[in-house]
Design a binder for these strands. Structure first.
Lengths: 94, 94
DNA sequence: ACACATCATCGTCCATCTACGATTAACGAT
DNA sequence: ATCGTTAATCGTAGATGGACGATGATGTGT
């Protein structure tokens, strides 16, 4: 009767968690819209301190939804299409 | 350049937040699978205390994803198809 | 009225989130 | 080598989440 720990439920929860904050939703949409974006631009677009944005980026990175490429002193972020597709599928299949 | 507070980002974040926990994902799937379910059954299916499950149900209810109908001393929960569809659309449109 | 069952709420504890300023690390340019 | 830029990390503070047991509220049945 008891449900077992469900890996898919956890995967979905983790991905959903990544977008469970307005700032992170905006970051993801920003990256989708622009295809790629430097960290500084993202900071400029949000009413948050640089360190706070960096934390949100870290959360998104850990979820796999986005990835960052170091480009000299800058970091260029873009969405990970596979993870995004995975999120869409898991939600869509609910 | 600054993004304005985005109502849709907040709506998405709120709905995503509702399913940003494995137990809540399992509850939602349970309700989808059974179409409707008493609170007690849900408690029996999860390895959590009754009060904890009740809290998760409250969160899901506040998000709009599920709704509960009082049926005597029991409460029958079911998914709110509209909210679920809304979540799917918001995620799908990302 | 009373006992029982069902579920919500309260109080508590610990962990994590969110936000910030300050600092550090890494790189380019002069 | 040093300075300025960029971004991550550290440290901190306050708020919230998640878990539980205990209690309260509501309704059913005897």
């Amino acid at each position: 009767m008891k449900l077992k720990p469900d890996p898919i439920a956890e995967e979905l929860a983790d991905l959903a968690w990544a977008v469970a904050h307005p700032a992170r939703v905006q970051i993801v949409r920003l990256l989708i819209g622009r295809d790629a974006c430097m960290c500084g631009e993202i900071v400029d677009c949000l009413p948050l301190a640089q360190s706070t944005v960096s934390q949100h980026l870290k959360i998104l990175k850990e979820s796999g939804l986005i990835q960052g490429e170091v480009d000299g002193p800058k970091v260029c972020y873009c969405v990970n299409e596979q993870s995004l597709a995975r999120l869409k599928k898991l939600i869509g299949d609910l």
